[in-house]
Design a protein around this nucleic acid. Sequence first.
DNA 1: ACTATGTTATAGCTTATAACTATAACAAAT
DNA 2: ATTTGTTATAGTTATAAGCTATAACATAGT
Lengths: 310, 310
Amino acid sequence: MRLEQLEYLEMIVKTGSFNEASKRLFMTQPSLSNAIKKLEEELKIKLLLRTKTGVSLTDDGREFMSYSKQVTDQVSLLQERYKKHEPRKKSFSVSAQHYAFVVSAFVELLKGLDVDEYNFTLRETETQNIFDDLNEFKSEIGILYLNNFNEKVLQKIMKENDLEFQPLFNAKPHIFVGYRNPLIKKKSVKLADLEDYPYLSYEQGDANSFFFAEEILSTIVHKRNIKVSDRATIFNLMAGVNGYTISSGIISNDLNDDKIVAIPLDVDDSMTLGLVKHKQIELSLTAAEYLKILKRHIQNYGFQIIDENN
Amino acid sequence: MRLEQLEYLEMIVKTGSFNEASKRLFMTQPSLSNAIKKLEEELKIKLLLRTKTGVSLTDDGREFMSYSKQVTDQVSLLQERYKKHEPRKKSFSVSAQHYAFVVSAFVELLKGLDVDEYNFTLRETETQNIFDDLNEFKSEIGILYLNNFNEKVLQKIMKENDLEFQPLFNAKPHIFVGYRNPLIKKKSVKLADLEDYPYLSYEQGDANSFFFAEEILSTIVHKRNIKVSDRATIFNLMAGVNGYTISSGIISNDLNDDKIVAIPLDVDDSMTLGLVKHKQIELSLTAAEYLKILKRHIQNYGFQIIDENN
DNA sequence: ACTATGTTATAGCTTATAACTATAACAAAT
DNA sequence: ATTTGTTATAGTTATAAGCTATAACATAGT
């Protein structure tokens, strides 16, 4: 199958005639007939109904057009981008779970930029989307955690997609609660202490993707569950309904007005936060710079960077 | 640009080597080198950084990959569909504004089907999406209204996209209110009568697409506006807040439990409801069947079909 | 230092095939 | 009947994708 064949077909459908289409495509009618014939032979379906007065789409052809249009639309987008030879803007994208250090490092990276035109994207999203973004080359790196429970599944997904995980640091699970929550008096909390409070978690796109749950220990059954998709909302709910969430113990005071408190969770599990990237592709200079900043921010929070070079 | 070149590039990026990629693609390394060279020349950008120990993506290459992936993913979807030569399921799709007769005719069409496998879709959506669905061949026909105000703009859009409008019937605007609304005592209402009630309308995807407003007379300024995206919601709001909406005067009692009342609106404007389709493409048998049913349903509501064959 | 093995690039040839010209076969309108 | 419109087929030509052989260089191991 060639892109030309798809364009030819679309022109024929648009004009309702091989003859007219061939003129508009600046080619001869027999060439066009042949091109479509080849396409039909390859697909083993009849796309067009030829009569002596013109052509019309078959039902198969109608269905094929819906696929074809998707392809040609994407191609024109690409062509559009590269026919004007504009110099490329500096660009960089990260997809990450919701962590304060990811955001603060991103902000510092932006502040240090010396160019006045750029395309930078920070996608705070669900775990599955992180893998999708990497696969589609929409993001260069991803940031997420592995623990004993999700490791096997996520490693398998990464292997299948030529992705690799580079550990950054180990963190002990904490719970986050509003500053008025009775639990803040405790030095650490046990799972049993949490029973009577609503459990706040991030909405996962696909309900059955159990293993993608962003919060550690998410297999534990909670009495009351509240799912949201926005970080600001989760903070509101901590104050509003005395809810709690479980995460890595990293939270930025700047962003949260001192109204959110982290308390160590007393369980026998730890999480490894790290970076996901394409195995064979080296990091861009911008990505390497971001990683450097990220590591410094992590250390500022008092965590020890796992460095493979040592 | 050829699809092969995109696939080659992806394999090279995946393996990090021309040599290894050529093996996996069952071709020789010089051929592969040449294919990529040609691609780079065509795009006038350098995609890959060649060293004596392998290759890596340039920043331009990274950006290109995000476009390329979109294309190749769509292509694999297409290949996937046509490599197994399954017989096609009977399929048909309509995109329409929110009208009861569209739904009831669709239901009748489904009931009359003799096959047990099919793909049928009814997309009740905003005006812009109707055009998009037709353009992408996701729907075969669209149903919407024209009036004096939106006609020029919509006709222009249709012309640009090789679409045509076939009028079905003329309708006078009505308002719809809940059965407890004080206005139901009137035989007809004037715009002034409506001032004190909230105006309910359908959310339009793009806020600035003023001309796509689904309701007739939507240019008039209403004191209180409520926008929703779901028809069930609009019916709830009619009862709950005594709101009203403006439409064609067609509503199915079966679907709405007699709790919604239509009242003629006393204005000097009328709307023409009709069908939008690709100009050059004939309707499938299923679409023609649907159209026949649709016309009968419209007549059952007491409207006169505009038939171009007379 | 030399060899073996890895990398990508270049030159020239072969071959596949897309598009061409000329013509056929048919339909509808004048 | 003739003209003008369809699409399809046969045979030729020209473009270019892929091939083989080889060059140019880098790295690792004797």
